[in-house]
Amino acid sequence: MVDGQHAAINDTPFEILGTPQKGGFLIVGDHASNRVPVDIDLGIDPALLSAHIAWDIGVTEVARLIIQDARFAAYLGGYSRLVVDLNRDAHDAAAIPTHSDGVVIPGNDLGPQEEEERLERFFWPYHTYLAQLLSQHRPALILSLHSFTPALESTPQEVRPWEFGVLYNEQEKASKLAIPFLENAGYIVGDQLPYSGKLLNATMNRHAEANNIPYIGIEMRQDVSSDPDGQARYARTLAEMCHFVSEQLGLSI
Protein backbone atom coordinates (compact mmCIF):
# COMPACT_ATOMS: atom_id res chain seq x y z
CA MET A 1 0.00 0.00 0.00
CA VAL A 2 1.43 3.39 -0.96
CA ASP A 3 -0.94 5.79 0.74
CA GLY A 4 -0.51 7.33 4.16
CA GLN A 5 -0.07 10.84 5.51
CA HIS A 6 3.56 11.34 6.56
CA ALA A 7 4.08 7.59 6.56
CA ALA A 8 7.62 6.36 7.13
CA ILE A 9 8.16 2.84 5.86
CA ASN A 10 10.07 0.90 8.49
CA ASP A 11 13.36 -0.74 7.46
CA THR A 12 13.11 0.41 3.85
CA PRO A 13 15.13 3.22 2.27
CA PHE A 14 12.36 5.67 1.53
CA GLU A 15 9.66 7.79 3.12
CA ILE A 16 6.30 8.81 1.70
CA LEU A 17 4.81 12.18 2.61
CA GLY A 18 1.17 12.87 1.87
CA THR A 19 -1.06 10.65 -0.21
CA PRO A 20 0.07 9.83 -3.76
CA GLN A 21 -2.83 10.12 -6.17
CA LYS A 22 -3.44 9.36 -9.78
CA GLY A 23 -3.27 12.55 -11.80
CA GLY A 24 -1.63 14.57 -9.01
CA PHE A 25 1.89 15.86 -8.45
CA LEU A 26 4.65 13.64 -7.05
CA ILE A 27 7.89 15.02 -5.63
CA VAL A 28 10.82 12.58 -5.87
CA GLY A 29 13.84 13.34 -3.69
CA ASP A 30 16.60 10.76 -4.11
CA HIS A 31 19.00 12.45 -1.69
CA ALA A 32 16.63 13.78 0.95
CA SER A 33 18.26 12.12 3.99
CA ASN A 34 21.71 12.00 5.60
CA ARG A 35 20.98 8.93 7.73
CA VAL A 36 23.52 6.11 7.87
CA PRO A 37 22.51 2.69 9.25
CA VAL A 38 24.16 1.87 12.55
CA ASP A 39 25.81 -1.22 11.08
CA ILE A 40 27.56 0.71 8.27
CA ASP A 41 30.79 2.57 9.04
CA LEU A 42 31.71 4.95 6.25
CA GLY A 43 35.00 5.77 7.93
CA ILE A 44 34.53 9.55 7.73
CA ASP A 45 34.21 12.37 10.26
CA PRO A 46 30.55 12.29 11.40
CA ALA A 47 30.41 16.07 10.94
CA LEU A 48 30.58 15.49 7.18
CA LEU A 49 27.11 13.94 7.32
CA SER A 50 25.76 17.47 7.67
CA ALA A 51 27.58 18.59 4.50
CA HIS A 52 26.38 18.56 0.92
CA ILE A 53 28.31 15.38 0.09
CA ALA A 54 25.94 13.40 2.32
CA TRP A 55 22.56 14.72 1.14
CA ASP A 56 20.59 17.37 -0.67
CA ILE A 57 20.15 19.97 2.03
CA GLY A 58 16.63 21.37 2.37
CA VAL A 59 14.79 18.90 0.16
CA THR A 60 12.76 17.27 2.94
CA GLU A 61 11.80 20.60 4.49
CA VAL A 62 10.72 22.07 1.15
CA ALA A 63 8.79 18.91 0.28
CA ARG A 64 6.94 19.01 3.61
CA LEU A 65 5.86 22.57 2.89
CA ILE A 66 4.76 21.82 -0.67
CA ILE A 67 2.60 18.84 0.30
CA GLN A 68 0.43 21.11 2.40
CA ASP A 69 -1.24 21.43 -0.99
CA ALA A 70 -3.07 18.07 -1.00
CA ARG A 71 -2.52 17.64 -4.73
CA PHE A 72 1.14 16.94 -3.96
CA ALA A 73 2.81 13.94 -2.33
CA ALA A 74 6.49 13.12 -1.92
CA TYR A 75 8.66 10.03 -2.22
CA LEU A 76 11.98 10.62 -0.47
CA GLY A 77 15.14 8.57 -0.15
CA GLY A 78 15.70 7.49 3.44
CA TYR A 79 19.49 7.14 3.65
CA SER A 80 22.54 9.20 2.78
CA ARG A 81 23.81 9.32 -0.78
CA LEU A 82 27.11 8.14 0.72
CA VAL A 83 25.44 4.83 1.61
CA VAL A 84 24.12 4.48 -1.94
CA ASP A 85 23.45 7.11 -4.56
CA LEU A 86 19.94 6.40 -5.78
CA ASN A 87 20.28 8.77 -8.74
CA ARG A 88 22.75 6.50 -10.53
CA ASP A 89 22.58 3.33 -12.51
CA ALA A 90 23.06 0.40 -10.17
CA HIS A 91 26.53 -0.58 -11.29
CA ASP A 92 27.84 2.91 -11.93
CA ALA A 93 31.06 3.27 -9.95
CA ALA A 94 29.55 6.31 -8.20
CA ALA A 95 26.49 4.40 -6.94
CA ILE A 96 28.52 3.47 -3.87
CA PRO A 97 30.95 6.39 -3.86
CA THR A 98 34.52 5.92 -2.65
CA HIS A 99 35.12 9.68 -2.76
CA SER A 100 33.02 12.86 -2.98
CA ASP A 101 34.19 16.45 -3.46
CA GLY A 102 37.69 15.59 -2.32
CA VAL A 103 36.62 13.43 0.64
CA VAL A 104 37.73 9.79 0.65
CA ILE A 105 35.10 7.34 1.95
CA PRO A 106 37.08 4.27 3.04
CA GLY A 107 34.02 2.39 4.30
CA ASN A 108 32.79 2.13 0.72
CA ASP A 109 35.84 0.24 -0.52
CA LEU A 110 33.79 -2.92 -0.96
CA GLY A 111 34.23 -6.21 -2.72
CA PRO A 112 31.76 -7.32 -5.41
CA GLN A 113 29.62 -9.36 -3.00
CA GLU A 114 29.46 -6.50 -0.49
CA GLU A 115 28.47 -4.09 -3.26
CA GLU A 116 25.63 -6.36 -4.35
CA GLU A 117 24.43 -6.69 -0.76
CA ARG A 118 24.42 -2.88 -0.39
CA LEU A 119 22.43 -2.50 -3.59
CA GLU A 120 19.96 -5.24 -2.60
CA ARG A 121 19.39 -3.58 0.75
CA PHE A 122 19.01 0.06 -0.32
CA PHE A 123 19.04 0.67 -4.08
CA TRP A 124 16.66 -1.93 -5.47
CA PRO A 125 13.90 -1.57 -2.84
CA TYR A 126 13.79 2.19 -3.44
CA HIS A 127 13.43 1.85 -7.20
CA THR A 128 11.13 -1.17 -7.07
CA TYR A 129 8.70 0.59 -4.77
CA LEU A 130 8.82 3.81 -6.78
CA ALA A 131 7.95 1.82 -9.91
CA GLN A 132 4.98 0.28 -8.09
CA LEU A 133 3.83 3.66 -6.81
CA LEU A 134 3.91 5.18 -10.29
CA SER A 135 2.03 2.21 -11.70
CA GLN A 136 -0.70 2.35 -9.07
CA HIS A 137 -0.94 6.15 -8.76
CA ARG A 138 0.44 7.55 -12.00
CA PRO A 139 1.03 11.27 -11.44
CA ALA A 140 0.37 13.93 -14.04
CA LEU A 141 3.74 15.54 -13.29
CA ILE A 142 6.85 14.59 -11.31
CA LEU A 143 9.00 17.18 -9.56
CA SER A 144 12.49 15.69 -9.20
CA LEU A 145 13.90 17.72 -6.31
CA HIS A 146 17.60 18.12 -5.50
CA SER A 147 19.85 20.87 -4.13
CA PHE A 148 23.38 21.98 -4.93
CA THR A 149 26.19 23.60 -2.99
CA PRO A 150 27.12 27.16 -4.06
CA ALA A 151 30.81 26.17 -4.10
CA LEU A 152 32.55 22.81 -4.36
CA GLU A 153 35.54 22.28 -2.09
CA SER A 154 37.43 20.59 -4.92
CA THR A 155 36.85 23.41 -7.44
CA PRO A 156 36.30 26.62 -5.44
CA GLN A 157 37.18 28.74 -8.48
CA GLU A 158 34.02 27.65 -10.26
CA VAL A 159 31.24 30.19 -9.85
CA ARG A 160 27.75 28.82 -9.20
CA PRO A 161 25.48 31.87 -9.14
CA TRP A 162 22.17 30.17 -9.90
CA GLU A 163 19.26 30.04 -7.45
CA PHE A 164 17.63 27.21 -9.38
CA GLY A 165 19.00 24.75 -11.86
CA VAL A 166 16.59 23.04 -14.25
CA LEU A 167 17.67 19.64 -15.59
CA TYR A 168 16.21 17.34 -18.24
CA ASN A 169 17.24 14.69 -20.72
CA GLU A 170 15.20 13.62 -23.76
CA GLN A 171 11.87 14.85 -22.39
CA GLU A 172 12.28 18.64 -22.38
CA LYS A 173 8.83 20.19 -22.66
CA ALA A 174 7.97 20.61 -18.96
CA SER A 175 11.41 21.93 -18.05
CA LYS A 176 11.40 24.37 -20.97
CA LEU A 177 8.18 25.82 -19.55
CA ALA A 178 9.60 25.90 -16.02
CA ILE A 179 12.69 27.94 -16.93
CA PRO A 180 10.92 31.14 -18.07
CA PHE A 181 8.41 30.79 -15.23
CA LEU A 182 11.24 30.84 -12.67
CA GLU A 183 13.03 33.66 -14.47
CA ASN A 184 9.84 35.73 -14.52
CA ALA A 185 9.53 35.08 -10.77
CA GLY A 186 12.87 36.85 -10.34
CA TYR A 187 15.27 33.93 -9.95
CA ILE A 188 18.67 33.37 -11.55
CA VAL A 189 18.10 30.09 -13.39
CA GLY A 190 20.61 27.64 -14.79
CA ASP A 191 19.42 25.78 -17.90
CA GLN A 192 21.15 22.39 -17.51
CA LEU A 193 23.29 23.92 -14.72
CA PRO A 194 25.15 23.38 -12.39
CA TYR A 195 25.39 20.22 -14.51
CA SER A 196 23.45 18.63 -17.32
CA GLY A 197 20.55 16.24 -17.06
CA LYS A 198 21.86 14.72 -20.27
CA LEU A 199 24.68 13.33 -18.12
CA LEU A 200 23.06 12.74 -14.72
CA ASN A 201 19.36 11.91 -14.78
CA ALA A 202 19.23 8.24 -13.80
CA THR A 203 16.08 8.19 -11.66
CA MET A 204 14.06 10.29 -14.08
CA ASN A 205 15.38 8.29 -17.05
CA ARG A 206 14.25 5.07 -15.36
CA HIS A 207 10.89 6.15 -13.98
CA ALA A 208 9.67 9.25 -15.84
CA GLU A 209 11.10 9.17 -19.34
CA ALA A 210 10.72 5.40 -19.71
CA ASN A 211 7.03 5.70 -18.77
CA ASN A 212 6.36 8.96 -20.63
CA ILE A 213 5.49 10.84 -17.43
CA PRO A 214 6.19 14.59 -17.65
CA TYR A 215 8.73 15.81 -15.12
CA ILE A 216 10.82 18.79 -14.09
CA GLY A 217 14.29 18.30 -12.62
CA ILE A 218 15.07 21.02 -10.08
CA GLU A 219 18.29 21.85 -8.26
CA MET A 220 17.83 24.34 -5.39
CA ARG A 221 20.71 26.45 -4.12
CA GLN A 222 21.63 25.14 -0.67
CA ASP A 223 22.39 28.45 1.04
CA VAL A 224 18.73 29.26 0.33
CA SER A 225 17.21 25.81 0.85
CA SER A 226 18.93 25.44 4.25
CA ASP A 227 17.18 28.52 5.65
CA PRO A 228 13.54 28.40 6.85
CA ASP A 229 12.61 31.60 5.02
CA GLY A 230 14.32 30.33 1.88
CA GLN A 231 12.55 26.99 2.19
CA ALA A 232 9.18 28.71 2.41
CA ARG A 233 9.98 30.88 -0.62
CA TYR A 234 11.19 27.92 -2.64
CA ALA A 235 8.16 25.84 -1.69
CA ARG A 236 5.72 28.54 -2.81
CA THR A 237 7.55 29.06 -6.07
CA LEU A 238 7.86 25.38 -6.92
CA ALA A 239 4.22 24.63 -6.14
CA GLU A 240 3.13 27.54 -8.35
CA MET A 241 5.55 26.40 -11.06
CA CYS A 242 4.10 22.88 -11.09
CA HIS A 243 0.56 24.20 -11.41
CA PHE A 244 1.61 26.58 -14.20
CA VAL A 245 3.44 23.89 -16.16
CA SER A 246 0.58 21.41 -15.78
CA GLU A 247 -1.86 24.01 -17.11
CA GLN A 248 0.39 24.81 -20.06
CA LEU A 249 0.72 21.11 -20.87
CA GLY A 250 -3.05 20.62 -20.64
CA LEU A 251 -2.77 18.19 -17.73
CA SER A 252 -5.74 17.62 -15.44
CA ILE A 253 -4.68 18.12 -11.82
Rank of each mutant, 00 (worst) to 15 (best):
G102Y: 06
R160C: 10
H243I: 08
Y79R: 06
D39H: 08
M220S: 04
G77T: 06
R236F: 01
E247H: 12
L193S: 08
V83P: 00
I57N: 00
L17N: 01
S196N: 08
L82D: 03
G186Y: 15
M220K: 04
K176W: 14
H52G: 03
S50D: 01
F72K: 00
L134A: 06
T155N: 08
L249I: 14
M204H: 04
F164R: 08
P112G: 11
Y234E: 05
G230R: 10
Q136C: 03
A90T: 12
S50A: 09
E170A: 13
G24C: 03
G107N: 07
L249E: 10
E15K: 13
W124H: 14
R81W: 06
G217V: 10
G190W: 05
L134S: 04
D45Y: 00
R121N: 04
S154I: 14
D92H: 15
E163W: 12
Q192I: 08
A140H: 10
I53F: 04
S100K: 08
E153W: 11
S135H: 07
I105H: 03
G29T: 02
I142W: 08
M1T: 04
P46D: 00
D3A: 11
E183R: 15
G102I: 09
E209R: 10
D39A: 07
I179F: 13
D85I: 12
E115P: 01
K22Y: 04
R71M: 02
F122W: 07
P150D: 02
A73G: 01
A74T: 02
S147M: 05
S225N: 05
H6K: 13
V224L: 14
N87C: 12
G58S: 07
L238T: 05
G77H: 02
R138F: 03
A94D: 10
A208S: 15
V59M: 04
P161E: 10
E115C: 15
L49P: 00
L65W: 00
S100Y: 09
G58N: 05
D227Q: 15
L145W: 02
R121Q: 05
L200T: 12
Y126C: 04
S196H: 10
R121M: 04
P37E: 02
Q113H: 14
G102E: 04
Q222D: 09
F25Q: 03
Q132L: 13
I142C: 09
Q231G: 07
T203M: 12
H99V: 14
V166S: 06
F122G: 02
N184K: 15
P13Y: 01
N211W: 05
P37V: 09
L141N: 06
W55M: 03
